[in-house]
Structure formats: structure tokens, C-alpha cells
Amino acid sequence: MTGGRAMDGDSAGFVARHRPGRDREALAARAERRAREIPRLRDSLAERPGNLVPLTEEALALAGLRQLLGPEDEVPSRLRLSARAAMAAGVMVTPAGPPLRVDLGPPGPPDPRGPVELPRGREPPVGLTPRRLVQACHAALATRDRIALDLFAQVPVDRVARQPPAAEDRIYGLAHAQGLQALLRGDAAGNQLLLQAIQGCNDTALAPASRDYAQFIVSPEIELTLLHRDSEAAKFDQALRNALVLHRRYWADIQANPGESQDSDPAGFIALGPLAWAAMRHDQGLPVGIRSDYLPRGVVEGAV
């Protein structure tokens, strides 16, 4: 699928962000509520480790709101927290053994509360899905977070999906998450799994809303995964631009539920998959010729 119409602010090397339907004051109030919720969820984990999933959701949403409203320098720490929380939830599904100790604190000085101690041998927490692991992987890659990536390597992805698997997991989600795991450990089988996932994004067995998400968001980010080492800069930039325009179209124009706009959803303010692969390409010394409001520049360049 290729991108749609241009909008004001677009140029040959820049993709502008869509305009949210809610005003800045309402969005700022949302951001403050989420900022207050994150410490509460963090402090509840000893008694309720399943709260790792709401924690990853709140942190990712706050990253999107900070990208829109500022300050942008808060975005990386929120992405890292989201990634570590999701991956820790995945590792809890491993067979029973010594407790898992994870530092969820910000970069810099150690968290004065110390690492969180979490049980193993648990059922997957409610809301943890292969797609959530993919998002966490992208957040970890974008912010170069070795802790989250090391946790990802331990996650039994096939046990995270509920049984029987949802259509999204069965058709593309499991292959996508497992393909990323294989790719990151240097296993060439990852490419085949990613190709399987990208083909699944067009499967007619998906419900219409799920197929929209797969075609507008998931398929373009897998294409970038497969191209991120390509020495032909024009090819990557074309795929990156297409992914960003489709991201904008999905969040600005597509209704996941009839009559329900998505234009103010914080998930739409950062293009997480494109951000991850642009950052990876930057670190490999390969050019990235497209900029966007959806791609925090300091994250792409590893400056924050």
C-alpha cells in the first residue's frame, strides 16, 4: 500500500504530523494524568505484577503526548520504561525459577527504589500480546535500550499469545514478534518470518478494522525492518516516507470504530516502528533523508 495525499508542511524531505481534534489544553491535562499514574503503577508491582501491562501502555502514551506537547527530552525515558515493562511482563511467562529483577528507573543515577522483583511461571498478564512485544522492541531499538532488548531475547513469544490465538496473532503477530527475536540474535530465519508476517497483513480473514491497522501500520514497518541495512538510501527513504504518510492517514482518517475519530490518540503522535529503524540506520552510519514530526530527531540521532 502506498501513501495518500500530501498536507500542509510536507516537503520532499519532511512529513508533517496530522492535527489532533482535541485542543492542547485537553491533551495537556491527559498528559498530566498519565504522568501521575505512572509512579502509582510502578509502586504497585510488588503486589500486582500484572500492572506491568498498564504501565507500558501509560508510558508509551505519555511519550506520544510529550512528542506533541513537549518537552521532547522526556520522550526517550518514557519509551525505555514502556519497553522494559512490556518485556518484563513477557519474561514472567518463562518457567518458574528465581525472581526476575528489573531496573525500571530512568537513565542516569540508579532508581532509589531499586530493581523491581517479579515472579516467573505466570500466565501472560491481561493485555500482553505479540503486538505489544513488537512495540516494546521498537521502543527499545529507538532508544538503544540494552536492558529491554536482553529481556526480549528471553520472552517465550508463543506462550504470550492467548489460546487459541486471536486472528491477528495467528495471521501476522506471532510471526512478526518471533521474526524480530530471530533477527536480533542474528538468525537468518527471522527474514522468512517477517515475510510471512507482511503477507499476513493482507489476509482477508482479518476483520476490516484489524486489516486496516495491519496494512497502514504493521506492513510498512516490516518493510522498513527488511530494508534498514540497505545501502541504497533512496529505497529506504521511499519506504520511510510511505510508512509515515500511511501512519498519518491511519490516525487522522481511519475510524477503528464507526463514528469514533482516532486523531487525538497518543499512539498516533510517534511513528514507533519507523522511528526504530531510522535510529538503527543512523547508528549503522547509513543516511536517513526523511524527517518528520512523528520522528523525534534527538531519538533518531541518539542525542537524548
Rank of each mutant, 00 (worst) to 15 (best):
H176F: 02
R84P: 02
R24K: 06
P49Q: 15
R33Q: 12
I198P: 01
M7Y: 12
G97Y: 08
D169G: 05
G64F: 00
C201G: 01
G4D: 08
A153N: 05
E32P: 04
I217E: 07
A276L: 14
V300S: 07
V102G: 00
Q181L: 00
P95D: 10
D169Q: 06
R19F: 05
D283M: 11
S219E: 05
R249N: 10
P54D: 01
L246S: 00
A142D: 08
D145R: 05
L226R: 01
V116F: 05
D8Y: 08
A279N: 13
A61Y: 15
L62F: 15
V126K: 11
P156N: 12
G121E: 12
D230G: 08
L183R: 07
L118D: 03
R291H: 13
P109Q: 04
D8N: 14
R241Q: 08
L65H: 12
R185P: 05
L100I: 01
P125Y: 00
A256G: 06
D253S: 12
A61I: 09
A161L: 10
R84S: 03
P49A: 11
R17W: 12
D169S: 08
G105W: 05
Y172I: 00
P112E: 02
L133C: 09
R42K: 14
L81W: 09
S210W: 07
P119E: 03
A271W: 05
A83Y: 08
P54L: 04
A31M: 09
R146W: 14
R170H: 11
G108P: 10
A234M: 09
T143P: 06
V300N: 14
R80Y: 01
V102L: 09
L81P: 09
A96D: 11
Q192H: 13
I270E: 00
L100R: 03
A140W: 06
S44E: 15
L224Q: 08
L68V: 02
L100M: 10
T225N: 14
D237R: 01
V134S: 11
A243K: 01
A233E: 09
Q135T: 06
L194D: 09
E37W: 15
G4K: 04
D10S: 08
A16E: 03
R48G: 00
A271C: 04
E232G: 11
R78H: 09
G105F: 09
L295A: 10
A303V: 05
H138N: 13
V300L: 14
N51S: 15
P49M: 15
Q163L: 14
R36P: 08
L286Q: 02
S231T: 14
L62H: 10
R36Q: 12
Y250L: 04
L194E: 00
R48D: 08
R30Q: 15
E25M: 14
R22E: 02
H282Y: 14
L180Y: 01
G105R: 04
L41I: 15
G190R: 00
P99I: 02
I217D: 03
P54Q: 02
A252E: 03
T204W: 04
L100K: 01
P39D: 11
V160G: 11
A148C: 12
L184F: 06
G70L: 02
D263S: 15
A29T: 13
S210H: 15
Q284I: 03
R33A: 09
R17E: 08
